[in-house]
Design a protein around this nucleic acid. Structure first.
Length: 973
RNA sequence: GCGGCCGUGGCUAAAUUGGUUAGAAGCGCGGCGUUUAGGUCGCCGUGGGAGAAAUCCCGUGUGGGUUCGAGUCCCACCGGCCGCACCA
């Protein structure tokens, strides 16, 4: 510690000579206290372990109620922060500081989500190693954030790119790889337990696999791959030639383009790693109920998981080979089965190609011309349509959604309820990825089927009686009748009749019939699909997987972790013409022969063998899937987190049945990506016994966005917002009128305001107050630099209420505050306490301002007890000035650990309350009454009022509503 | 198209959740004061309309409804934002 600013005596060495609270003094105060906090470790949290990575004393900290407060960690971007970025960090800091002052043991820190595409792209352009540029960015961002005075436990920080961190990301991957979902137990279990079941015969191998004992190693590996929660498969994936990588469904926009870069995305069959998140669909859905999350986010997750109840139904069909096959469809409207007049398969469906094909050599006699697409044979027609569909990006499919296209396969299936032959089509309005990739078409009661039926002149049979007066003659309809609130008709065979039943009843009846006949069953279908987990990138976690000479995947033993990224010369994935679908990925890691081809002893008793490494890397989401666990125990080299520590900070407890972080703040844009993946990993780790929590984040809060005005000239080009002048509601830049719109803040829109410039002009405390005072945390609002001064003035007045501006001496007195001041004080304490708890910082600041204004108006010196409590009230929001004033008031320990004031109820309620007396809702009189007045007494007082009696004018009273002590309303007869 | 959220002064926003007088707090604006001057100073005022004033009338996107009482609840419409989107 240097002589100039001893940590123990931070106020002893002011670097400015003025005692007026201005930018220079604020900067001085802030720098001194930030140094003090760092030196003292003011915000270091101690759990049951006595601190991270150290076997210290638990002390009394762990005995206090814990509060784990967390932010969605940042990606260290090279462009630096603007004032929108730290909004959430400031909010969690205020919340955490308040919690600390109310007796909680608080854990709050911040790390970096360091893997990602921008660093890699920068590396490709400049040749700088992504680690180097990312580290520089992190340093920059850390410096910017330090100025804000965030009370983080800095010992707990890390970056996802640190090998000591991603060692455990890889370890978790192996846990997931080595696990299967046991439906009987409804949880994940180690894959060894499945092998045991196969070996003992307790479980039979599925389908055509044959007995376990007769399978060779490769076959066993393939079979187990069908159970593992992390598995490689050749499924159609989203291939993005422009980025040179495959993408998860969640990373593809509704327009069928990449979320990053906006390149076209195509379906391609590629061998890729997947996570079996679908096994958790039900739990991911159900456990949402117990979470304290915004309803909008829960809804988005529910929609994404997309649970729908319905039935599977088999429609018998003959394969061209002569074998009996069935088209299995999924439907949510099994009650309309009698109205199914044709079927549609997705173009990629297995029954229109290969050995099981149902496509005949020639068109059946009398095939309608529009069904054939003009082709001579069904095979040609199907092949052409399949080719056309594969070449279409989702954008194009989307654009043509209104015009139904498709082609007849030449095959007929049998509708099991009435034995009718129904033609089977392929069409791209049926998606291979949803349900079974096949539907029964009920044109009368589904608008898509209706459009298709009209285009292909297929019969439309009404089986649900319309309630809108259109009648049952479908020839006169312009659209399907799809209401759920109507009766079934025309739906009977020799065994069953649905006629006259409502939808629910009819569904139940037909499902039971299908199940009895063994040709269908009630099922639940999910929209959620498995998570595509591999990427063709350099800057991500390598997979801890090697392949032997038979191509069998082996996990690396734990002792070989972390598997570090090799140094390479070329970081770039091979990219292609963005529109060329006929390309395939090439990973950057595959070009490093020395790294890829290795001889290893995996410790499986088979000695040193030759292996080839997996050359894909994990997606960006991997690191953020579990970081909440690592903050708890960041230096543990033996385990990802010590179980006792995890249980203390995150374990289940009253009101939090699945455990989790107490408050997690971040943007709503992660509603389904990060938040769903993190929940999934949390559940797997929970099932395998590694953690006690089954949810990562108990309470989630989405902060709004800070928006900014964007000014554009006549060409539509953004002009520097800071240089635009306003004249009578119009905006001018360089003599030209420009238009104003509300948009995002950012460099490209030339409207970014940095925290640095606001700190320089007013100080960090003012910036913090302004950001919190702008409005409710969860609402987006425009930044207004000239309004910042309002919060600066608050701090100036606060300063003046405690300190003499000319001498720097404290001016408080030891006299008793007057009654009015006590009431103002305790009302403020009461209100601020409740607002802090509920994250309503804007109204908390308003109440502090009111109290401060009251003291200013009262004039004269402020009583010490009031000044001290005012300082404590503002301490979570403006910690630097609070520390300084707290010190000046004679305290020698940090205000961060002082007790937050508690309101005295006696002063929170007013001595008298104004009671309004209404006659028929119109105010006739006001009474000053005690807040504890009884209803009867108040009613009597009200009725005795002259104004009330004259208003009643002798009329009788029908009713008197008394809401003591505020209101009496008399209703005349 | 389906689902969700939201409309309050010139601007950002309050309103103990159905209970008085809507508009706390801040910005902006106006006035006065201190100052040689300036404002990142102090004080006062500031929803609209009428009036010298007391005071009165109107007012929470529009129209209806429920209620003794509606910014708050219900219905319809208008406007805005977000999510999903051929999901069978």
């Amino acid at each position: 510690m240097s002589e100039n600013h001893s940590a123990a005596e931070p106020a002893a060495s002011p670097r400015t000579t003025s005692f007026r609270y201005e930018a220079a003094l604020a900067a001085d105060i802030e720098a001194r206290w930030q140094d003090f906090w760092d030196a003292e470790g003011t915000y270091e949290a101690t759990g049951p372990e006595g601190g991270p990575g150290a076997a210290g004393e638990a002390g009394d900290a762990a005995a206090r109620p814990k509060k784990y407060v967390m932010d969605m960690f940042p990606y260290p971007s090279g462009s630096g922060l603007h004032v929108g970025h730290p909004l959430g960090y400031i909010a969690t800091d205020v919340y955490a500081r308040h919690a600390r002052m109310t007796g909680h043991n608080v854990l709050h820190t911040l790390g970096f989500d360091a893997f990602g595409l921008p660093a890699e792209q920068y590396a490709v352009q400049t040749g700088t190693h992504p680690r180097v540029s990312t580290e520089a960015n992190m340093e920059n961002m850390t410096a910017q954030l330090r100025r804000l005075g965030l009370g983080h436990d800095k010992r707990r920080s890390f970056a996802t790119m640190d090998p000591e961190y991603y060692k455990w990301t890889q370890w978790i991957f192996l846990q997931i790889f080595n696990a299967w979902y046991d439906d009987a137990a409804d949880r994940a279990r180690p894959i060894g337990t499945l092998v045991e079941q196969f070996e003992s015969g307790e479980r039979e191998t599925p389908g055509d696999w044959g007995p376990w004992s007769e399978l060779n190693a490769a076959q066993r590996a393939d079979l187990l791959g069908e159970y593992r929660l992390a598995y490689a498969s050749d499924a159609p994936v989203n291939w993005c030639p422009g980025l040179g990588t495959v993408l998860a469904n969640e990373e593809v926009t509704a327009e069928g383009r990449s979320e990053r870069g906006n390149f076209p995305v195509f379906k391609a069959k590629l061998r890729q790693w997947n996570m079996r998140i679908t096994a958790y669909a039900d739990r991911l859905l159900n456990d949402l109920d117990a979470l304290d999350w915004p309803e909008a986010i829960k809804l988005q997750q529910r929609n994404w998981i997309g649970r729908s109840e319905g039935a599977r139904v088999d429609f018998p069909v003959h394969a061209t080979s002569g074998a009996d096959r069935a088209v299995t469809v999924f439907t949510t409207r099994q009650d309309t089965l009698f109205g199914a007049t044709y079927m549609v398969l997705a173009p990629e469906h297995g029954l229109v190609s290969g050995p099981d094909t149902i496509v005949p050599d020639a068109w059946p006699e009398g095939t309608h011309e529009v069904w054939t697409g003009g082709y001579a044979t069904p095979a040609e027609a199907v092949a052409a349509y399949r080719k056309q569909a594969a070449a279409k990006s989702d954008v194009e499919r989307q654009a043509e959604a209104k015009d139904k296209t498709g082609v007849f396969t030449g095959a007929y299936a049998v509708n099991p309820v009435n034995g009718e032959q129904v033609p089977v089509f392929i069409a791209d309005y049926v998606l291979m990825g949803y349900g079974t990739g096949a539907i029964m078409a009920v044109p009368a009661h589904d608008s898509r089927d209706f459009a298709f039926a009209r285009a292909f002149e297929l019969p439309i049979r009404c089986v649900v009686e319309p309630t809108d007066g259109r009648g049952t003659d479908t020839a006169t309809w312009d659209d399907a009748f799809a209401s759920y609130d109507a009766k079934t008709v025309n739906s009977a065979n020799d065994e069953i009749s649905l006629d006259g039943l409502g939808v629910t009843e009819a569904k139940a009846r037909i499902t039971e019939w299908l199940e009895r006949r063994g040709i269908g069953e009630g099922t639940v279908n999910f929209r959620l699909r498995d998570w595509l987990f591999s990427r063709q990138r350099y800057w991500g976690e390598p997979f801890p997987i090697v392949y032997d000479e038979d191509g069998i995947a082996h996990p690396l033993p734990e002792s070989m972790l972390p598997l570090e990224l090799p140094e390479v010369e070329d970081y770039s994935p091979r990219t292609f013409d963005p529109d060329d679908a006929n390309t395939s990925p090439e990973t950057p890691l595959s070009r490093n022969g020395d790294w890829v081809n290795v001889e290893l002893d995996l410790g499986d008793g088979r000695g040193v063998r030759k292996f080839r490494r997996e050359t894909n890397t994990m997606p960006n989401w991997a690191g953020s899937c579990w970081y909440e666990l690592r903050y708890l125990d960041p230096r543990n080299s033996e385990r990802l987190v010590d179980p006792e520590i995890e249980r203390y900070w995150m374990g289940p407890r009253e009101g939090q049945p699945h455990g989790g972080v107490d408050l997690y703040v971040g943007g709503a844009e992660h509603a389904v990506l990060h938040l769903l993946y993190a929940r999934f990993w949390s559940k797997v780790l929970h099932d395998l016994g590694h953690i006690s929590s089954a949810e990562p984040f108990h309470k989630l809060y989405n902060q709004g966005m800070i928006q900014a005005y964007v000014y554009r000239d006549s060409r539509g080009i953004a002009v520097p917002a800071a240089e635009v002048e306003e004249r009578d509601g119009t905006y001018w830049y360089g003599g030209e009128q420009v238009t104003r719109l509300l948009g995002k803040m950012g460099k490209s829109l030339k409207n970014a305001v940095t925290p640095d410039e606001i700190c320089a002009e007013y100080g960090a405390d003012t910036l913090r107050l302004y950001e919190m005072a702008m409005g409710p945390l969860d609402v987006s609002r425009p930044w207004d630099t000239r309004a910042v001064v309002g919060q600066f003035r608050l701090l100036q007045r606060l300063w003046r209420n405690v300190v003499d501006e000319t001498t720097g001496e404290v001016t408080v007195v030891d006299s008793e505050p007057d009654e009015a001041t006590l009431r103002a004080l305790h009302k403020a304490i009461d209100g601020v306490s409740r607002d802090m708890e509920a994250l309503r910082f804007n109204t908390a600041i308003a109440k502090i301002t009111e109290l401060n204004n009251h003291l200013t108006k009262a004039g004269g010196p402020v009583p010490r007890t009031v000044a001290e409590r005012l300082v404590l009230l503002i301490a979570p929001l403006a910690p630097h000035i609070a520390e300084e004033l707290w010190y000046k008031l004679g305290h020698r320990t940090s205000v961060a650990h002082a007790d937050f004031p508690v309101a005295d109820p006696a002063y929170v309620v007013d001595e008298t309350v104004t009671c309004v007396v209404q006659v028929k809702g119109k105010i006739k009189a006001r009474l000053e009454v005690s807040p504890s007045i009884a209803d009867e007494e108040l009613e009597a007082l009200a009725l005795a009022e002259d104004a009330v009696r004259s208003a009643l004018g002798g009329a009788g009273i029908r009713k008197v509503i008394v809401r003591a002590p505020k209101l009496v309303n008399i209703v005349p007869a």
